[in-house]
Structure formats: C-alpha cells, structure tokens
Simulated scan of single mutants.
Amino acid sequence: MTKICKGGFEREFIREQREMYGIAYTQNILSGRWKYLILWFLKNKERRYSEIKSFLSDISQGSLTKQLRELETDGIINREVYPEVPPRVEYSLTPKGKALIPIIDLMEEFGKEFGEKE
C-alpha cells in the first residue's frame, strides 16, 4: 500500500494502481467515525451546526468541528455563515458530496440486510 501524506497520495501509486487509488481516495475522504452519518443527515437538506450536534448526540464539539472541517476541505460540504447575531452557520452537500450519497444509501441497505436483526 502507499503512504497518504498531507498533500494526498504519492504520484507513483496513482499512476500504477489507478483502480485501487479510486477506492483509497474515497476511503480517505470518508475516514472518520462520524462522516458517514453527517453525510446521511445532510442528504436531503442543509442543517445548522446545532441540528447536526443534536443528531449525533454522542459526539464531542471538537470531534464534530474536526469532521466538518475535513469534509469542507475535501469539497464534500459547504459551510455558509450568515451575518446575524448570533451568527448562523448552515452546512449542505456540494455536488461532489451529493455524488457520495449512493454509496451511503448502499451502506444503509447492506446494514439493513446483514446487520443485527431485532
């Protein structure tokens, strides 16, 4: 396997392992305990930070902020700050983020079929 550095993947790996690179790139974007659930929660409409925090009740403020920043840096979500007092911040999916939703939906279906039954 290859080393993933701050700037991304080694060029040689991208060139020589193109098929594997696609999987590794997607995994790198989605790495993080909460990112899948954040994307699922944003799939139908934009949400405020407080809504996401309430939905993911077990996540710390620091972890949520980190996950949201990483998703924003990767171009998966938009962060819109409204000039109000107090400031209102809303998160939504970018076109790149919307392209990940079929993957999230397949994960949901897989879990329903093969996950623990009640």
Rank of each mutant, 00 (worst) to 15 (best):
R48Q: 09
N78F: 08
Y49F: 15
K117G: 11
K6V: 14
T65W: 00
E10S: 11
I76Q: 02
M1H: 13
E12P: 02
G32C: 09
N44G: 08
E80N: 12
E109F: 00
G7Q: 02
I59Q: 08
F110E: 11
N44W: 00
E19M: 07
P86Y: 00
G8P: 12
F41N: 15
V81H: 15
G111A: 12
P95W: 00
G22W: 12
L37W: 06
E19H: 14
L30F: 01
R88G: 02
D105F: 02
Y91F: 13
I38K: 00
W40D: 12
K43Q: 15
F13W: 09
G75S: 08
Q61C: 07
R69M: 02
R69E: 10
S57W: 07
L68H: 05
Y49E: 12
R15T: 13
N44S: 10
K117C: 10
I23P: 06
Y49M: 13
R48G: 08
L100Q: 11
E109Q: 06
V85I: 01
M1L: 07
T73M: 00
R47Q: 12
E108D: 12
K98L: 09
L37F: 04
E19V: 07
R47C: 06
E10T: 09
K66P: 03
I52M: 11
E108G: 05
Y36C: 02
V81E: 15
I104S: 05
E72Y: 04
E19Q: 13
E116D: 15
I76P: 01
E109S: 04
E51H: 08
N28V: 03
L30T: 01
P95K: 06
Q67E: 13
Q17A: 07
G8L: 09
Y91R: 07
I23L: 13
F9S: 13
K43L: 08
S54T: 15
K112R: 11
E72C: 01
G75Q: 05
Q67P: 02
T94N: 04
G75I: 06
R69K: 10
E108I: 02
K53L: 06
L93N: 11
S92G: 13
F13R: 15
L100P: 11
A24G: 04
